[in-house]
């Protein structure tokens, strides 16, 4: 389960998956293997939905809006969920940290 870490992110922050990870899709859920740390991560369908949009070009705000639309959540609930997952992924170095992330223009949703 996700930890209780609550990270505050700027809504324009564009999380970006690390390219060296191995990924596999199994029945709508995801598995991510990090060869650097030999750790495996299981993403349920919602987490996978968010993960797939962590492409370095999509803002947290934009991801949250899509999550709200898809899973019928309020904007605040969706933003909380997205921030929580992004915090978790960042802690485990599955996405670039905010400091390392390349600065690019925010794409519109």
């Amino acid at each position: 389960m996700l930890g209780k870490t609550r990270n505050e992110y700027s809504s324009s922050y564009q999380p970006n998956r690390r390219p060296s990870l191995r990924e596999s899709l199994l029945d709508g859920e995801g598995l991510v293997f990090d060869e650097e740390t030999n750790s495996t991560h299981h993403l349920n369908s919602t987490a996978l939905f968010i993960w797939n949009q962590c492409d370095g070009n999509t803002s947290i705000q934009c991801i949250a809006e899509r999550v709200a639309d898809t899973y019928d959540l309020t904007a605040k609930e969706a933003l909380d969920e997205v921030s929580r997952l992004v915090g978790y992924l960042e802690e485990r170095r599955l996405i670039h940290s905010r400091e390392d992330a390349p600065k690019e223009d925010v794409k519109s949703c």
């Binding site: 389960m1 996700l2 740390t37 030999n38 750790s39 495996t40 991560h41 299981h42 993403l43 349920n44 919602t46 987490a47 968010i50 899973y71 959540l73 969920e81 929580r84 997952l85 978790y88 485990r92």
Partner: peptide
């Protein structure tokens, strides 16, 4: 809503 699990290392 979200679930993610991780396992590390080569136990």
């Amino acid at each position: 809503m979200l679930e993610i699990h991780d396992a590390t290392g080569d136990p």
